[in-house]
Simulated scan of single mutants.
Amino acid sequence: MMYWWDDHMSGWGYALMAFSSIVFWALLIVALVMGVRAVRHTRSGPSPADRPTPEQLLAERYARGEIDDDEYRHRLGTLTGGTRADSHR
């Protein structure tokens, strides 16, 4: 009678198969999460840290000549709580 002991996977084969399956699914999930984050980041626009402050916007308007010196100082004083507007008068 002949025994067929060598035609099946050993314990190491099952362990390797289980480990490789876990690694495959983990990599797939990580890739999906990173892809979703990348798409959300590109659609959300600039972050709040990238937006100019009100003082920067006012300085840009002054630099373009949209407002004069007195109006710039008045509005800057309003934005900063009156400290700069009072010091220039």
Results as ranks from 00 to 15, higher is better:
3 Y>W: 08
1 M>S: 12
87 S>M: 10
30 V>G: 01
72 Y>R: 05
39 V>P: 07
68 D>K: 05
26 A>I: 05
82 G>T: 00
89 R>H: 08
52 P>A: 00
32 L>I: 11
79 L>N: 07
85 A>T: 11
13 G>M: 01
37 R>L: 14
5 W>F: 14
23 V>N: 04
5 W>S: 12
39 V>E: 04
32 L>K: 15
43 R>A: 14
58 L>N: 06
67 I>F: 09
51 R>K: 13
56 Q>G: 06
51 R>W: 03
48 P>M: 00
59 A>W: 00
51 R>H: 11
22 I>R: 00
37 R>G: 10
73 R>N: 04
42 T>D: 13
69 D>H: 02
55 E>P: 00
86 D>V: 03
74 H>F: 15
26 A>E: 02
47 S>I: 05
60 E>F: 07
6 D>Q: 12
33 V>W: 09
87 S>K: 07
73 R>C: 03
29 I>F: 13
40 R>W: 04
78 T>N: 07
55 E>K: 06
52 P>H: 00
13 G>P: 03
53 T>A: 13
54 P>W: 02
79 L>C: 03
43 R>D: 01
53 T>I: 01
66 E>N: 10
2 M>L: 14
42 T>R: 10
17 M>W: 03
27 L>E: 04
39 V>A: 09
13 G>C: 05
32 L>H: 07
59 A>M: 09
64 R>Y: 06
1 M>Q: 05
27 L>T: 07
64 R>N: 15
68 D>C: 07
42 T>F: 11
15 A>C: 05
15 A>K: 08
4 W>Q: 14
14 Y>D: 01
20 S>A: 04
60 E>D: 07
16 L>A: 09
72 Y>T: 02
15 A>H: 06
18 A>D: 06
56 Q>R: 13
31 A>L: 15
64 R>W: 13
76 L>I: 10
14 Y>S: 01
46 P>C: 00
5 W>G: 11
73 R>M: 12
71 E>M: 06
71 E>K: 04
12 W>C: 04
48 P>L: 01
85 A>W: 04
75 R>W: 03
38 A>C: 06
3 Y>G: 13
73 R>Y: 09
8 H>C: 10
88 H>L: 06
4 W>Y: 15
68 D>Y: 05
60 E>G: 03
6 D>I: 12
44 S>V: 08
65 G>L: 03
71 E>G: 06
4 W>K: 15
24 F>M: 12
66 E>I: 13
11 G>Y: 10
30 V>T: 04
39 V>Y: 13
4 W>R: 15
39 V>N: 08
59 A>E: 04
37 R>K: 06
87 S>R: 13
78 T>D: 10
40 R>H: 10
81 G>Y: 02
20 S>M: 12
66 E>P: 08
76 L>P: 14
61 R>T: 07
48 P>Q: 05
33 V>N: 03
72 Y>K: 03
50 D>L: 12
24 F>Y: 09
25 W>P: 02
52 P>V: 07
57 L>G: 10
10 S>T: 15
86 D>W: 06
35 G>S: 01
88 H>G: 04
54 P>T: 12
6 D>N: 15
40 R>S: 00
84 R>G: 04
54 P>K: 00
79 L>K: 10
76 L>H: 15
89 R>S: 10
47 S>R: 12
83 T>G: 00
37 R>C: 08
26 A>D: 02
54 P>N: 06
85 A>Q: 10
40 R>T: 02
9 M>F: 03
